[in-house]
């Protein structure tokens, strides 16, 4: 009985929990839309910046903003 729990039930539970957690945190895994300044106006870009931390978010050296008005630069770790 003890062996069955250790060898089958516990691993099965762990697998289900890990898959469930992956689905539950799916939204955190998606990139967010930010805006960069271009000569033709603000351009929407996808970014993985976590919007937290000390630094600022850049896309190929262009600062990434939260809004189309290019206000509030998105945060990055460093």
């Amino acid at each position: 009985m003890k062996t069955t729990v250790l060898k089958i039930v516990l691993p099965a539970f762990a697998i289900v929990m890990a898959v469930g957690l992956a689905f539950a945190t799916e939204e955190n895994n998606l990139p967010v839309t930010g805006y960069i300044s271009t000569p033709s106006g603000p351009l929407p870009v996808q970014t993985d910046c976590p919007d937290t931390g000390q630094g600022y978010c850049f896309k190929e050296s262009n600062p990434v903003y939260r809004t189309m008005a290019l206000e509030n630069q998105i945060r990055d770790w460093e």
Binding site: L10, P11, A14, I15, M17, A18, V19, L21, A22, F23, T25, E26, N29, L30, P31, Q46, D48
Partner: peptide, 25 residues
Amino acid sequence: KLLLGMLFIYTATGKLMHLDIFQMR
């Protein structure tokens, strides 16, 4: 073994759910 298994299942599932985004990254 369970902790490592959970870590790898969690990360693999996350990647497989959005393969296109994973490739973009």
